[in-house]
Design a binder for these strands. Sequence first.
DNA 1: GTCTATAGGTGGATAGAC
DNA 2: GTCTATCCACCTATAGAC
Lengths: 198, 198
Amino acid sequence: MPEKILSTALELYLSNGISAVSMRRIAQKLHITAMALYRHFPNKDAILLALVEQGFTVFGEYQYRALAGKTAAERLLLAGKAFVDFVVENPKIFRLIFMSPDIFQKVHNEGSVGIRAHQTYQFLLDRVADGMREGFLKEGTNEEVARAIWGLCHGMASLYVIGMLDVQESEFRAMFMSAFLQMGSGILVDATLEKFTV
Amino acid sequence: MPEKILSTALELYLSNGISAVSMRRIAQKLHITAMALYRHFPNKDAILLALVEQGFTVFGEYQYRALAGKTAAERLLLAGKAFVDFVVENPKIFRLIFMSPDIFQKVHNEGSVGIRAHQTYQFLLDRVADGMREGFLKEGTNEEVARAIWGLCHGMASLYVIGMLDVQESEFRAMFMSAFLQMGSGILVDATLEKFTV
DNA sequence: GTCTATAGGTGGATAGAC
DNA sequence: GTCTATCCACCTATAGAC
């Protein structure tokens, strides 16, 4: 039953945002009363917490697909593709776990969620460290490169999910990978690099 | 008086998020009753709309500083710096105008806000077109480059604002510019580029 | 321009019966 | 495990007096 409560809460969030998630509405969808929910969860925040944790689990499933790659380069590329897949197939979950500061304030300090969030970054950091070891990434600070990649992925996804890129799902995949590759090869004509860094 | 209402609404949003913005609370802070607000705005959504428009005005002031640059390269770099400045100095406004899908749904189709949002992208697109004309950016599609830059900036800022980068303001500036420059020169060793694009 | 009175709604949560 | 009854806080908004 706790699972049905969570999936219903997720369904409500997915269709109408966080303000649509209320004890009464969850109960209504399950054809029970709101008070019955308290037999399974101590309060509403506990439901939100479990919901976010579930979201991270879904994300983790995509992320770990990248480990199927045989080289560090392939694994990083697959990580990028897994990320687009996740975003395109679960845009609302992306919003839930990465774009909901209001929920974060309630839930992010709960330990478990903070750990999950950190793991997603650690995964990318490992891919970057692998890449430098294998020599296909330029030498540099792991963190700086990882954060730039993370920022790019997060930003492209956020703009898409928020509706600021006027594109459909299929276009977005291409657009995302284009940005990913631009980060790889750079956008500057080398000769003018010093102009840029002034 | 409408200005005092807006600044109070902004203050409430800045300190406690969107759920803290209510007619009652705005009125309370102004030492009037909630009903008096309806003399100045027809309803709450009108206040939120005006608030978002005000946010875009603040953002626009930062953005246009970049036009002081004498070359296209300098203007693009200044645009990046202006963006960090805006984010560091107005993190909550950033959240309001670029990271609040719930508000967007209410307000983004109101025409005026949609136009403002589009202008911010157009500004970047112009910088990129300038850069290609001047020859310091690689030849390519304006839109692809602009969206990659936008995604990177938006993503770094979002992660910072949401508290996912464990850094202070000063560190963030350096981190942001580092990511900006990585986008410029690329993170890949050229020889292995084809591996990456598989 | 601001007020009171009030309607009509949302929400989370406790107590206690079955 | 689920129910009813109920409390209390909070919200937007209308009508109409001053």
